[in-house]
Design a protein around this nucleic acid. Structure first.
Lengths: 347, 347
DNA sequence: CAGGCGATTGCAAACGTGTGCATCGCTTGA
DNA sequence: TCAAGCGATGCACACGTTTGCAATCGCCTG
């Protein structure tokens, strides 16, 4: 595994002492000059800075963080970076991190708890200043690993945000309510719900938003219209197949997210039905591709990039000692496109 | 920018000396015990390891790399992680890195040279052991920044791989040739090419593969059938519009990549044409979503994940002193789906 | 019984940086 | 003229780890 191999050593970079020798001062003075410390002579400081630049001096983050006890790094653990939603979030995190001088470690967990523990351990050894976890179902898992150091953790769309102090989550219930209400307004009454894996919190929330909208419109809840996928296209295809074989086919399907909607659409087209002619489809996320699908997908926009930014800003606020808002709930926004239309047959 | 703010200090983690005090030995012995060094008494070693585990001791990577001159980190610079191709590659890199005990820094450049320099500087300060650069057009840019330390760089689908010693690239020419030949075989003769931004090397290569296939079939090259997008859906939409207004419309379009194909398909559907009935479309990449599009997209599969793995394996080989193969050319694979069919009218 | 050897362990230096405190030289005011 | 004061700089230690070398100890061997 962790190859202890005999790696060849690279040329050593210039150190602060090298610059000190060249400038004929002590390394302390060099350190101060490079930090624009007021206690060093202006000319000397400038001379030192020139020398440093000329010799391509780059301070060692490791040495610095050893004494300052700050690494200016954060760790981001994701299930898989290949998920477009996750990628968007990570982009937002990285943007804010970079703007504040932080570097980000990225690690995949593949939703494997064992792997997730390893990841956190490595983050711990790297002495990251904070951690962002996206879409994990991890619960108390992290606490024991990080008990000694009080590494702040910000959860993003996590399964059990209540167990932690800081989180950024989409308002799943409201979003699902809005998108379902939109279908009802169009005249649909046989509306199915194609969820994530059974039992996941965000799935439960979206399902309850869906039910709320139905209740509001006094449409009876039909549990046979509830199927579960896996949050990906693959699972949605199987789940959609079940819905298609029902005697009284739904005229609309609320999908857990856009990837599920993509799978559902694929299955529907494969069966020879049209969207939205025969069946209306809605998603959740508004991935970049969703606007270009055929037909373009009606969905709830989840500001992934912005949510990533918020998570990182929260982390920075915590590190600065500011008591930041603890749990941020981001509203989704209904985006109506061509995948929804009134049902063909009258209800 | 880089807030020098007054960050609060976290609780200090246990150090090797703390464990030494508890075990009543010197910290050297602890160090050796934890490395399974044969020169320490077996019982003592076991006792130390137990203590370390009990107190949640986690060695400081910073302190270690300070003396070993190895950080066991690598830097990955991407244009944007939101590009599904890039995300796939990064997933492969991270997988191999993690398996070998490396942590990966991820940084976006947004294709901005200035930003790219900043990224490399930060990687340099972090003393990364190696760097992977994907899809950048960067040329000699990196060399001056990293001149002192000989940090190995592996390029992945880069614009000017020849300037560097190590690279992993897809065989663009062959891929474009294959996919064009496929269209010709179906009977198409009016085949357009919807490229990336003009002048990019991969664009040039794919264009030449396209031309080669045409020449092979003795189909005259029509420069009006060549349009340029931006490698994304947005640019492809504009470029596709031009093709649609031509008096003698092409019956098939070879797109630079799948995202371009997505945009092109969107535009074609928007104009009321059918795919592949009126126009056949092919892409390049085989993104995960491509199989689920309507219609499913014929394309060249680029093993993104595997290519990421190869890049990381190359890096490890370099670091191990093994003279690895310098330039890996990965073959693409034609995947035929429903977006291509014989042209309606006879040629 | 002395010398020596092998098994363990500790000492101390080094990696590169930040920083409190002492020091040094020079100016200034009495 | 001398002491105080001030600006500028260096000394020395700390951060947590690895590692060559010396030291200690017990025991074997000649």
């Amino acid at each position: 595994m962790s190859g202890p191999a005999d790696f060849k050593l690279p040329a050593k970079p210039a150190s602060i002492k090298d610059i000190a020798r060249l400038a004929k001062v002590s390394h302390s003075t060099v350190s101060r000059a490079l930090h624009n410390h007021p206690l060093v002579n202006a000319e000397t400081a400038e001379r030192i800075r020139q020398l440093a630049r000329k010799h391509g001096y780059r301070p060692s983050a490791a040495a610095r963080s050893l004494v300052t006890q700050r690494s200016f790094t954060i760790g981001v653990v994701v299930t898989t970076i290949s998920d477009p939603f996750v990628a968007g979030v990570v982009g937002g995190i990285e943007e804010i991190a970079a703007a504040h001088g932080f570097s980000v470690f990225l690690a995949n967990s593949n939703a494997d708890p064992e792997q997730e523990v390893r990841v956190v351990q490595s983050f711990d050894e790297r002495r990251v200043d904070g951690i962002v976890v996206t879409s994990s179902r991890v619960g108390a898992l992290y606490v024991p690993v990080l008990s000694r150091r009080q590494v702040p953790i910000v959860l993003l769309n996590n399964q059990h945000p209540s167990e932690f102090a800081y989180s950024v989550v989409i308002d799943s219930t409201q979003g699902a309510y809005d998108v379902t209400a939109h279908l009802i307004e169009l005249g649909h009454r046989r509306i199915a719900f194609l969820g994530d894996e059974f039992g996941r919190q965000s799935d439960t929330e979206r399902l309850s938003g869906y039910r709320e909208a139905l209740a509001q419109a006094e449409i009876p809840y039909n549990r046979h219209y509830i199927v579960h996928g896996d949050g990906k296209a693959e699972g949605a295809i199987t789940a959609m197949s079940k819905l298609l074989t029902m005697p009284l086919r739904p005229t609309a399907v609320v999908c857990y997210n856009d990837m599920s909607a993509l799978g559902a659409m694929h299955r529907i087209h494969g069966a020879g039905f049209s969207i939205p002619g025969d069946i209306s489809i809605v998603g959740f996320d508004d991935l970049h591709i969703s606007q270009y699908l055929n037909p373009p997908l009606t969905t709830i926009r989840q500001p992934m990039h912005e949510m990533g930014r918020m998570a990182m800003q929260t982390l920075i606020a915590i590190l600065s000692g500011v008591i930041s808002q603890q749990n941020i709930i981001v509203p989704g926004q209904l985006v109506v496109r061509a995948s929804t239309a009134p049902p063909r047959e009258q209800p």
